[in-house]
Amino acid sequence: MSEIEQSTGLSRRAMMTAALAGGAGAMALPAWATEALAAETGKYPSHPKWRFVFVNHVTTNPFFVPTRYGAEDAGTMTNTTYQWTGSETAKTPEMINAMNAAISGKADGIAVCVVDPHAFDSVTVKALKKGIPVVAYNADGSTENKRLAYIGQDLFNSGVEMGKRIASMVAKGGRIGLFIATPGQSNIQPRIDGAQSALKGKGYKIDVITTGADLPGELTKIDAYVQGHPDVKGLFAVDAGSTQGIAQTMQKRGLQAKGVKGGGYDLLPITLQLIKSGDLDFTIDQQPYLQGFQPVIQLFLYKISGGLMAPSNTNTGLLFVTLGNVDPYLQTKSRYEGSDKAQKYIKS
């Protein structure tokens, strides 16, 4: 649950709806307010156009499209630029290579998905020694890494929350399929660990299945599993691709009608549509936009203050998207969820 949701008991969307429902006049903003919104930066002094390098493990994965928008928008606000690099297929040496190139190229800040328990430690120290701030985003897989902060989802906890949800949806003793794209990977393995810990001792028959990193392959794997286990009662995934695969399989085989429950992570368009149609029960919003936005802001603040404003661990939140609240996601083609390039002020 997001911190806001936890403290107020209201979903984020519900709050915004309430806040603006009160005044129709709130829709028309005075001119000075519009101007303020259009302004690009706050009262900051002029500074070099800093370049922040994002080192990612699956550079072409659609999950990170809103992340890039977030980085870009923050860049516009702070008058900085970002470079998107790393590995397409989660190859650690390629990511290290990119980090080294960033260091040699005198990047002004680095944001890296720490998807390996040890490999990034020495190169992070190398960057820090050269005065380049390093933050981890999306994945924080090393306990020894000296990155200044982690910006992303609390992975294990999100898994625990999902596990609790599953326990409330599936009858005890039922068979559950848990799907993970690439086991061991530090940004998704903790989720499945969290889910399994929440489900332990409740008598479920749990199968953990690897689906692989590409969408078509994931779909086939899930479909094959369902064919082979007609007694399955729940299908849940911890990554975007597998979640979509589950949603599509549930639709294809009409599994909801047979009493099967399904859910997962992330906001791929098809996943959202199939929540709307009732085939999938829930998905978890990691707010990937913030995973690009926040690192830029925090690195910027570090640079502009000469290191006084240190980056801080930021939980980009967790929200369950269900039939009850999926509409705004579907109706607003938005940059924040990655489905629209235009920058917009979204009135809820």
Partner: peptide
Amino acid sequence: LNNGFTLLGVDAFYND
């Protein structure tokens, strides 16, 4: 090539 393009700041999408 690989290293050079990264140093030049080429975006990953253009890399391939």
